[in-house]
Each structure stands twice: as C-alpha cells, then as structure tokens.
C-alpha cells in the first residue's frame, strides 16, 4: 500500500505547471488536494511516472466576486476555505450548502474545488453543484485558454473535458436572479460517507410565486451529474403544491435517473431516496424563492 516510484515536480507558477504538463503529457498526473489521487496511488490503481504538485502555486488559490453577482474561484482553493467563505454563502448559496456534505473536515482541509471537479466522481457533490448552478470551467494549456460550461465539462464517469495537457485554472459561478431558492440534499449511511443518492435544486419564481425556471441535478444515480429536465419542465409556470412536487419527484425518480446500486443501496432504494429528497429539496428551494 505504497505508491510506485515517480518523478516529482512542484512548480510555483501556472506557466511552469503547463510547461511541465506539455513535456510529460500522458505520463503525468496533476496533484491538487490529493484526497482522491493519493489513495489511488497508495493502492497502485494509478501509477503515474510524473507527478506535478500544484500546491505551491499560490496564484490558483482565490475567491473573487464577479460583476454578475457571482464568483470566480481559483482551482486550488481549499474546500474548507470555500466552506467558510461569507462571499460564497452570500453569492452562491447552493455551493455553500454542498460544502459541509463533502467527506470530512480533515479531507476538506486539503481537498480543492478544482481537484474534486476535475476528478468527476459520480458520487461527488461539487460536480452536481456545478451543473445545477451553471458554473463554467476555465482551462489553460500551452498558449491558449478556453471556457467550458458545466454540462459540457462532465462527460462520464471520472471523465471531463480536460485533456492530458490541460490545466483547470478557474471555476466561475454565476450569481442568481432575484427570487431564487436552492437546496442540496443527500443521504449517506454514516456522516461523511459517499451519499447513496442526492439532489441539487435551483429554482426561480416570479412575483406571483410561479416557477420561472428550475434545475434538478442528481448525485450518484448515473455516471455523473444527472439532470432531470422533464421533471423540471413540469414545474415551469406553476405555483407550488404538494401534488405538483410529488409528481415531479416521481417523474425524475422513475424516468430520468439511472442508479446502478452499490454495496450500501440497491437501485430501488436509490430511486426511493431520490424521490424523497426531491420532494424535500423542491419544498425547501421553492419556499426560499417565494419568501424573498
């Protein structure tokens, strides 16, 4: 249970890191928080011949307000810093709600926002929050930069739009329109375990309390963040009622998620959880949106 040998680099700038990546490409792994990568290396599931440690690049650690009422987060910002940030709580409440659900405090002290998103574990909270919040990903490689929206960034299990020479540098989280509500709900066997199922809800209402837009994104019931656009569509133009919420939850749980089941939960139980959590999350988010 020890890593295989590798060449180690600890660049101090983004440019240096990109240059090293360019040289090593497919043989290299980027080390961010290490809370998923190092276990894999300890088990020798992964044996990169080159490790590029990003932890000395201070320039990637920031939480900055953006002009649209949202935020720009440097990819190496620690999850614990995001969790404690008043700016995040105020501008991206969905992200603020997701943070304490991630693993344990000790993990969040090293884990980074960019690392978790780049890893794209289907059971992870941050990818689901990113899709639900319409985040976008700023990716740099030698001589160029591009921005990818969340629903294009996540491409499958542990698979993203990041190529072997790409470095994720920033994640942008838009501000929310007025009269918006958010909820992130999940159920795990023990506090801090991977959730058996979870859902992130974002919705906006008009002055009459009618839903204008809604987003439902599920955790651990597919090969990545799993959206339920048909259930969301059922809500648009409607006022809140428990019947409507139950119908939308039934629709999402029955037709729009694809749970595989695992050691802790059968697919049927995951569907059941998804249905229950959708009702709770929709009620919480709608109540919040309409109350403003």
């Amino acid at each position: 249970m020890k890593p295989a040998p590798f060449a180690y680099h600890a660049p101090e700038s983004v440019d240096q890191a990109i240059e090293l990546l360019g040289e090593a490409a497919a043989d290299a792994k980027l080390l961010a928080g290490g809370q998923s990568l190092v276990p894999a290396m300890n088990f020798r599931i992964l044996q990169p011949s080159v490790l590029i440690d990003l932890n000395r690049i201070a320039a990637l650690d920031y939480i900055e307000p953006s002009d649209d009422g949202g935020l720009r987060l440097g990819a190496m910002t620690r999850q614990s810093a995001v969790e404690r940030s008043a700016l995040v709580a105020e501008r991206v409440p969905l992200l603020h709600q997701a943070m304490p659900l991630i693993a344990h405090p000790q993990i969040r002290n090293r884990g980074t926002i960019g690392g978790s998103l780049a890893h794209a574990d289907p059971a992870a909270e941050l990818p689901v929050a990113a899709v639900a919040a319409d985040a976008s990903f700023v990716i740099r490689q030698n001589g160029s930069e591009r921005t990818v929206p969340a629903d294009e960034f996540f491409q499958g299990m542990f698979t993203t739009a990041l190529g072997p020479q790409d470095l994720l540098v920033e994640i942008r989280w838009p501000g929310s329109p007025p009269r918006s509500g958010w909820a992130f709900q999940e159920v795990a066997r023990r506090s801090g375990d991977y959730a058996m199922a979870g859902v992130a809800v974002r919705l906006t209402v008009n002055e009459a309390g009618e839903c204008q837009q809604a987003r439902l994104v599920y955790l651990n019931v597919g090969d990545g963040p799993t959206t339920a656009p048909q259930a969301a569509e059922m809500l648009v133009g409607q006022r809140h009622s428990s019947e409507l919420v139950a119908e939308a939850a039934d629709k999402a749980a029955a037709d729009e998620i694809f749970p595989f089941g695992n050691l802790h939960a059968s697919p049927e139980y995951q569907r059941h959880l998804a249905r229950v959590l959708t009702v709770r999350a929709l009620n919480a988010a709608w109540g919040q949106a309409a109350a403003i």
């Binding site: 249970m1 020890k2 180690y8 600890a10 290490g34 809370q35 190092v38 276990p39 300890n42 088990f43 440690d53 932890n55 614990s80 344990h104 405090p105 000790q106 993990i107 002290n109 090293r110």
Partner: peptide, 27 residues
C-alpha cells in the same frame, strides 16, 4: 487504512487537521 477514511493518521499541518497518509513527505 492508507486511503484517508479511518482518521488514525490525522496530524495538524499549519494548525489544520489533515490525513498524513494522503500527503507526501516532500509536500
């Protein structure tokens, strides 16, 4: 466990509790 879940290896790094099994000494 050497994969970050049991907590037996927890130490303080610059005052923050972290898993020492998930850090390289060089870091």
């Amino acid at each position: 466990c050497e994969h970050g879940v049991c907590g037996a290896c927890t130490v303080l790094l610059d005052g923050q509790p972290v898993r020492s099994c998930l850090l390289l000494a060089v870091q």
